[in-house]
Write a protein that binds this DNA or RNA. Structure first.
Lengths: 225, 225
DNA sequence: ACTCTCTGTTAAGCCTGTATTAATCCGTTC
DNA sequence: GAACGGATTAATACAGGCTTAACAGAGAGT
């Protein structure tokens, strides 16, 4: 999952982005509104964290401009204690949630996770397709009743695919959402990972959770059952 | 802790509630959905255990109605083996965890404790995983019947891990919860402590209570027995 | 002052993931 | 049906994370 963090205070930005990366997110950083807008429009962000206390109200106008462009990316705003009119304005401008500073980092992480899931259309922490069950909290994957060991990249790939089950995901899109920076075009890491995943998620080849759409990408099976 | 047990089968309900009381819980008992709903809305329940196999789908609608009222009480559902579509429907309706019948009572207790602790955010006195038992009040740790001497830092580490058993805990998260302020990034204290803990908690290496998730962190085993 | 225990550092070595390469397979197009 | 290009898969190299032992320094207790 790729996040955008817009925060002018360097120290806070550093520690937050570091922590978010530790928790497995790819993080783009911006120090002001315009820079944030650039990332939000040029890169496929899964969620934006925007400090409304940026100098010159640029956080506010960032949200407005992002929404004017028709982007539906979930936005979490940070406001200073006491400035509840900012918070209200932010929500009205199209933010999805807010957090009052100072906050416990874990609270931020919890909300980020919830928002990401919610925006993908999953209310619970458990996502499933047929016999495959993914727990975003324990990062455990079950196939039937068996727990399957996934490495951290394998996990990121399934998570992204399952969160967008039923959609065609191009390989570029997958890399962009999973890797911190742009990746070598002529590498076939993704294919390799898809291959490993298929083996682990569907060892006897009966369920075929990941379809290949030649030239277009992959599609995770969306299966209620 | 006050539990609500909704189970139509008299014998099972009696034995379960007895056992739960032995473990120190106050238990309200209901035999069907409507009765359960009454308790859930009229009394301050900390956790509800609901059998989805109640006659007339009333377990399912109980969950839905509880959630409709905006109650966040954690709900653990019981389903019969093979009916995983019930379990799925239950989770989607807002249940927090499930257990497949028949189950070992210890497994139920483990999950009840885990759910209560997690949802309430505060500690049950005794936390258990397999042969490992941690008493947060006396700060004593037992492995099987043997008491294990832990130093204060070792204890903090196990306590945090066990309180969040089943979750992936990044090393940053662990340090942040254990140390006052941010710690030297290129120190490997955590690894060292994990190593010492493993030796003490699992001297013959058979139970493996602490899993390593390379690049992601550690996960304490969430286990019955 | 001496000892003992605990914490945290260092460093060596192991091991697991990751990404590359390359051989092969399959679909599409002509 | 041949040729091309994308997709699959196995094998492998390498980096860097994890484990572990050994030890130094701090601090408590005697």
């Amino acid at each position: 999952m790729r996040l955008l963090l817009v925060e002018d205070e360097q120290a806070l930005r550093d520690s937050l982005s570091q922590r978010l990366r530790d928790e497995g997110f790819a993080v783009d950083e911006a120090g002001d509104g315009p820079e944030g807008l650039y990332f939000a429009t040029e890169y496929p962000i899964d969620l934006a964290i925007v400090d409304l206390g940026l100098p010159g109200f640029s956080g506010m106008s960032l949200i407005e401009q992002v929404r004017e462009q028709g982007l539906t990316v979930p936005i979490l705003i940070l406001t200073a204690r006491g400035n509840w009119e900012h918070k209200v304005a932010g929500l009205e401008a199209g933010a999805d949630d807010y957090l009052v500073k100072p906050f416990v980092v874990e609270e931020l992480l919890a909300r980020v996770n919830a928002l990401v899931r919610r925006s993908a259309g999953w209310a619970q922490a458990v996502i499933r397709s047929g016999p495959i069950e993914l727990n975003t909290k324990s990062q455990e994957v079950l196939v039937g009743d068996e727990s399957v060991e996934l490495t951290s990249f394998e996990y990121k790939v399934v998570e992204y695919l399952m969160m967008h089950a039923g959609e065609v995901i191009s390989k570029t899109r997958l890399t962009e959402h999973i890797y911190q920076q742009d990746y070598d075009r002529d590498s076939n890491v993704i294919e390799v990972f898809i291959g490993r995943l298929r083996k682990k998620l569907d060892p006897n080849g009966s369920y075929k959770p990941i379809e290949t759409l030649r030239g277009r990408g992959y599609r995770f099976r969306l299966d209620s059952q």
